[in-house]
Amino acid sequence: MANKTYSFYPGCSSQNKASSSNYLVSTNSMCQKLGITLNEVPDWNCCGASIGYGGGGELPRIVLSARNLALSEQHNAGQDMVATCAACWLASREAKERLDHSPQMKADANEALKEAGLEYKGQAQARHMVEVLIEDIGYDALKAGVKKPLQGVKFAGYVGCQTNRPFGIAGESFENPLYLDNLVEAMGGEAVKSYDQKVTCCGGALAFSEPEKSQKQIKDIIESAYDHGADMIVTPCPLCQANVEIYQGEVNKRYGTKFNIPVTYYSQLITVAYGGTAAEAGLNGHVVAPAKLAEIAGK
């Protein structure tokens, strides 16, 4: 296969027994099957996510990502730093943009980094795993390796916010990005193209602080998936996944709905389509079990 090597920034939620630990399990399986080697950034720290501004302001928040990028440059020289989490990627890329465009910001960040014995040079790119799949491997090559097509399963591709805005995937539109649908189809699944909530915000971190307002968003996202005949939702973002999956019981209580729809990661689809087991795809890590995927994995 591909034989590609990247520096890897897994992020807090992917760690063992954390809220998206099955994202990492399936990412590792997917990469192994695709011939992708991931070198973890040693001693990486939290990126501050979208809510870090409230306590951290600007420079301390940007320095968090500068430290990760500096560690990546130093230990995994010459490799792009790839993140799987939407917030990790956004924070890293945003920080890189600010640091590379402002000599003042860069000088300030480096003054702070010096305290940790590090220097940000701006050599590492900050990329998302989806970019690796689409740009470095490509849909055709991905399709060519499929062993068990996800035939007959209908997926609502819920792209969400932060892998889509403000940077997004090159060549895609902010209002109707197609890459998730394309990935689904490359794996032999059916993409629900009429799904009209694919870029609706799930509330993000405000699912914790403003549950009522966020659950209205989550209700819309799930309702549309049902209305358009989806068997399950698939997403590239760990917070989208968690918010849309784990609060279904709360939404049902609040709105009298009977939602019970699985929410999966693209990495799980690829792992299963490439012949991986349910455990390799992290299918045991769900509150709502993706039965149709497990069925294919078990064949």
Partner: peptide
């Protein structure tokens, strides 16, 4: 609530360098 949660999140992540989801909740 979001002002309070934002501060909690920052304090949580800066303590050990990574988020402790249980303590945050």
């Amino acid at each position: 609530p979001t002002a309070e949660f934002g501060q909690m999140f920052w304090d949580n992540l800066t303590k050990d360098g990574r988020v402790n989801e249980l303590k945050l909740s």
